[in-house]
């Protein structure tokens, strides 16, 4: 068991995205790692949607790991919201 505070939302199914939230790797900033089947066309849009959610839900500095399987923007935001709220509820 890793013992690191981590929250997950979403799935690896088509048209979905799996978001994993854990403490940031670099002090004083959020870190984001995205892997997507449509990285070339939509990579920047996916990162923008993730950053939007991070500003909306204050959870301190975190690392976001996103495995995207072609999710729409609304799906990305919904998964981000669920993952961040779950992360907030975890004991640190």
């Amino acid at each position: 068991m890793s013992g690191i505070k981590t929250a997950i939302a979403g799935t690896l199914e088509s048209n979905d995205i799996m978001i994993t939230v854990s403490p940031s790797r670099q002090e004083g900033k959020n870190t984001i790692a995205v892997e997507s089947i449509v990285m070339r066309q939509f990579g920047p849009a996916i990162i923008a949607a993730i950053e939007d959610s991070l500003t909306q839900f204050e959870v301190g500095f975190v690392h976001i790991d996103a495995r995207d399987r072609g999710a729409l923007e609304c799906t990305i935001k919904a998964r981000m919201e669920a993952a961040l709220l779950r992360y907030k509820e975890l004991p640190s």
Partner: peptide, 18 residues
Amino acid sequence: AGIVSRLIQHAAAQGRHK
């Protein structure tokens, strides 16, 4: 993909993230 996703979620609920 559906099965693996749910197994990952089940593991996460038990505190296993790796």
